[in-house]
C-alpha cells in the first residue's frame, strides 16, 4: 500500500469507507497478476498494431478481435492498479469480459475458423490472435489468467467484507 504524502488532503469519505475496498487491488500476489496483465497488454497491442498496419485486409475480423483483446488487457491492467470502488468494478467487468472472450473466440477459432476469416487454426500462424485456440500461442496464459484474476478479485472482496464486519463490530 502506498504511504500518503503528508500534503495530500484527506478525502471526505475517508473515515466511513471500507479500507480494503478503497485500496488498490495490486498488493502482494496481486502485483504479480498486474505484471502478467501488463506484459500481455504490451504483447497483444504490439501484435494487433503490426497485424493491422501491415496486412489488415487478410483477416479483418480476427485482427479487429486482436485489437479488442489488447484494449481489454490494457483496461484490466489499469483497473487492477488504480484504486477505488469504480476501478474495482471496471476490473470485474474487464476480466469477466476477457474470460468470455477467450472462451468464445477460442471455441469459434477451433470449431468454425471461417467465421473469423481464419484460413487455418495454427496458434503461431500469421492469422493467430491472442484468443484464438484458447490462447495456445501464448502458452494458454490468456485462458488461465482471467480465472486467476476473478479468484483474486473475489478474495479481495471477501477480505474487504470481513474487514467491514470487524469494523462494524468494533464500533457497536
Amino acid at each position: 500500500m502506498r504511504v500518503r504524502a503528508s500534503g495530500d488532503p484527506l478525502p471526505l469519505h475517508y473515515s466511513v469507507s471500507v479500507p480494503e475496498a478503497r485500496s488498490s487491488l495490486a498488493t502482494g500476489l496481486g502485483r504479480v497478476l498486474v505484471i502478467v496483465y501488463a506484459i500481455l497488454a504490451l504483447a497483444a497491442t504490439g501484435r494487433s498494431v503490426s497485424q493491422i498496419l501491415s496486412r489488415f485486409d487478410e483477416a479483418p475480423v480476427a485482427f479487429t478481435l486482436s485489437a479488442l483483446a489488447a484494449v481489454v488487457y490494457i483496461v484490466a491492467t489499469i483497473a487492477l492498479v488504480a484504486k477505488g470502488p469504480v476501478w474495482n468494478r471496471v476490473a470485474w467487468i474487464a476480466i469477466g469480459f476477457e474470460l468470455v472472450g477467450v472462451l468464445v473466440i477460442g471455441a469459434i477459432s477451433l470449431l468454425a475458423p471461417q467465421l473469423l476469416g481464419l484460413p487455418d487454426i495454427n496458434p503461431f500462424g500469421r492469422y493467430a490472435t491472442v484468443w484464438s485456440d484458447f490462447g495456445a500461442g501464448y502458452l494458454c496464459i490468456p485462458l488461465v489468467l482471467p480465472v486467476l484474476g476473478l479468484l483474486w478479485l473475489r478474495s479481495r472482496r471477501d477480505a474487504a467484507r470481513q474487514a467491514a464486519t470487524v469494523d462494524a463490530e468494533v464500533r457497536a
Binding site: M1, I35, Q51
Partner: peptide, 24 residues
C-alpha cells in the same frame, strides 16, 4: 514491423518490472 513491435515491448518490460517490483 512485427519484429520491432516485439523488440520495443521487450525493451520496455524489464524497466517496468523493476519499477513495479520496487513499489512494494
Amino acid at each position: 514491423i512485427e519484429f520491432w513491435a516485439y523488440l520495443i515491448a521487450a525493451v520496455v518490460i524489464p524497466v517496468l518490472a523493476v519499477f513495479w517490483a520496487l513499489g512494494e
